Every structure is written in C-alpha cells, then in structure tokens.
Computed example of a mutant assay.
Amino acid sequence: MKLKEKSTDLWVYDLLKEAELNLDAQGSNIKEIDEALKTASKRGTGKVGFPEYVGIVKDFIIVIEDKSSISMHEKRTEEEILAEDITSICDYAVNGALFYGKHLIKNTSYTKVIAIGVSGNEKKHRISPIFVNDRMDYYELPEIETFISFSEDNIYEYYTKEILNENTDFEKETKEILRDAALLHEDLRNYGSIQDKDKPLIVSGILLALREIEYGNFSIDMLTGDSKKTDGQKIYDAIKDNLNRANVSPDVKRDKLLNQFSVIKDTTKINQIDTNLGKTPNRHYTEFLYKSIFQSIRFHQSGEDYLGRFYGEFMSYSGGDGQSLGIILTPRHITELFCDLLDLKHTDKIMEKKIKEWIHKPTLYITQSA
C-alpha cells in the first residue's frame, strides 16, 4: 500500500508542476501554516499532522490529501454528507482534505481554503475540490482533471465563477459585447436603412477614422451635421488619412480599399440630422463605437480578442457568418494553432503568399494581428 501511495504522491506532484503550483510536501515552509500543522493530527491527539501537499496561492491556502485507490476517495453518512469521524478522516482522501482545510482555517489568519481530495492514478482517478470559508462552512465543488484552475493566473476567476457563482470578467464582457452588437445592428437599420452588405463597412470605416483622433485629424465634435461638408465626408477623409498613415500600397490598392467606404459619405440619410437623435446617424454610430468598442480595443489587455468577438457577433446579424458578404472570419482556435506552429512574435511581419502549386486548391492565407 505504501508503494502505491508513493506512486500517487508522485503523480499528484506532476499535476502540481504542470499547473506551476509550488506546494510543500508533508509540511510547510510558511511559518503560520507550519505552526498550525503541529496540532493537526487526524486522530485528534493534538499532535502533528501533515497533508500530502499544502501551500499558498494568492490569498488562498491549497491543501491536498491523496489515496492510491479510488475506493478510498470519500466516505459519506446516511444523509449523504461527508463523514467527519476519525476513521473516515484517516482513510479517505476527501474527508482528510476537509479535515485539514477546517483545521487551517481555524488556526491561521487565512479566510479561504481550497481542500482537494485526490484518489487513483494517471489512468483512472478522481479529483474533488472543497472550499472552506472563515465560518468553517464548506462547499463541495465540481470534480476536476487538473490543478490549472488554481494557478496564480486562474484562481480568482475560478473563485468568482465556481464558488461565488458570479460571472467572470470575461463572461460579463462577452454579454456586453453581444448586447452592443445587437444594438448597433438595430440602429444601423432603424436610423440609416443600411443594407447588410454595407453595415460592416460603416463599422470598420468609423473605427479607422477614430484612430486619427490621437493625431488631431479627427474628433467626434467635428460631426455637426453640416450640409456642405457632411459628417460622412469628414469620416471618409479621416479614413483616407489613416490608410495613408498605415502606408497601404500600392496606390491602386489603397484607392480601391478607400472606395469601399464611400457608402459613409454617399448615403444621404445617415448624413442628415435625425429628429429623434438630435444629430446625424453617422455621429450617433461614431459615438456608440467610440464608447463601446474603440476605447475597449485601445485600452483593453486583449483588444484584438474584444474586437474579434464583437465583429463575429455583429456579422451574425449582418449576413450569417459573413461569407455571403465575402468576409471570412477564421475560427479563433485555428488562428491560434497556426500562430503557435509558426512561433510568431509581436515583431514579426506576416505577408500574404499565394500558393500556386495546386491549381485546384484554394489559396491559403495565414494572418495575425500585431
């Protein structure tokens, strides 16, 4: 049995290493936890007791008990709650982990413990986390396959989602993106009667124009509803400036690209002041995109992801998946795979290359935003 227990300990160690968790085995280098373990005997003798692994991640204590056999994973009472008698605590992984979790809450200044019972081996196993709070209440959490959720980068998101049962920042953000995409789609239709094929051009064109704000060539306040130089013309001019600044070449390509945005200046309805809005629809769209999208993609840590999720959702309103409009949005997992395979860095430049070896094969483009 001891040999099997040792094998399980080593497998658990590998899981910890994979998740980049530095927990101590059979003791603790943290003075406060070490002192608490001096009275942590599972038999209730008041003597020393050592879980398999214990340590700190952020402001959480992580404590792990493991057993070699899945049959020794957990013991429950007739009421289907975890048994807390001495035999169950000593013989079962989850029960032992819960014991140590409660003991550490009671005897340290920490207020959050994640106690994890592990049984089995790499091929067949169970991993059951339990959250223990400073009132000694505990909550059994869904079983997991790895410890990656408890890494420094992930533990707060795990705590928010699985323990507090709140939406994570990512989920809140996604809901806002879905809402914004739907609202903009409706406004383009209601205030401009814009055709589906032109909606992506208005959105992308305005986002390009907004990039000229920092260079002093464009501002939302410029959009006054002037009938001589329309708001659309001002946006169009800013788009032209931005394409020039980006060194889009050759000239024929830049001019062809710019011409696609003519709908912004040539559509009369969106350049006239709407009585309900009190401004032109073009200004309304620009204000909306600046507040909801542009600031997020400019100041957000993963702005490209934010824009990608928005644009993907927006396209679902504006033409299915975009293919009917000639727009192909490569799935995120595909772009990530090829970027990993190519080992791309932020300093790399990606160039389109037409593959002509097979006449009947489609051209392949691999692109990545810098």
Rank of each mutant, 00 (worst) to 15 (best):
D24G: 00
H185E: 08
I213Y: 06
F218S: 02
D255M: 11
D187F: 08
N242M: 15
F299L: 10
I350Y: 02
V113D: 01
N22G: 06
I328G: 07
S292K: 15
K124T: 07
A83V: 05
D266T: 08
V203P: 02
I177V: 11
I148A: 04
L258K: 01
Y311S: 02
L307A: 13
T174A: 11
V252R: 13
T168H: 01
I148H: 07
A97D: 01
F338I: 14
N22K: 13
E65H: 03
I86R: 11
W11I: 05
S41F: 05
T8N: 09
L289F: 05
I89E: 09
L201K: 14
T108M: 06
L325H: 12
N190F: 10
F218L: 02
I328L: 12
Q368D: 12
K234Y: 10
T174R: 14
K4P: 00
T168I: 01
Y138P: 08
L329H: 08
E352N: 15
V252C: 06
I70D: 05
I194G: 06
K199H: 06
D255P: 06
D274L: 01
E313P: 00
I297T: 13
L141S: 03
S88G: 08
F261P: 04
L208G: 03
I206K: 06
D321H: 06
F170V: 05
S318H: 02
H185W: 06
F338W: 12
C339D: 15
S219M: 05
N95V: 11
F261L: 09
N154V: 06
A93K: 08
G320V: 03
Q295D: 14
H360K: 14
S292P: 00
D343A: 09
D266V: 03
Y311F: 15
C339Y: 10
N121A: 00
Q301K: 12
H125L: 00
L104N: 04
T146H: 07
I327H: 08
L16P: 00
K17A: 11
E313M: 10
S151C: 07
E35S: 09
F314M: 01
H360Q: 15
Y100A: 12
L21E: 02
K229N: 10
I155V: 15
D221W: 01
T230P: 04
P331T: 02
L307K: 08
G120D: 01
I297S: 04
G96P: 09
N242I: 11
A238G: 04
Q233K: 11
T335H: 04
Y139P: 04
L342A: 15
K269Q: 13
I130G: 04
K47R: 10
T87E: 14
V132Q: 02
I70E: 10
E145S: 14
P142Q: 12
E78M: 11
F338C: 05
N133C: 07
D91Y: 14
M222Y: 07
A370D: 09
H125N: 11
H73C: 02
L289T: 08
R211Y: 06
I235S: 05
I33K: 06
K161Q: 12
I155R: 03
L364W: 12
M72A: 15
D34Y: 13
K38W: 05
E5F: 09
L184P: 01
D66F: 08
P250D: 06
K47S: 13
N29T: 13
N276Q: 07
K67A: 07
I177E: 03
E152K: 14
V12E: 01
E145N: 10
T108F: 05
L141Y: 02
I56V: 15
Y159V: 12
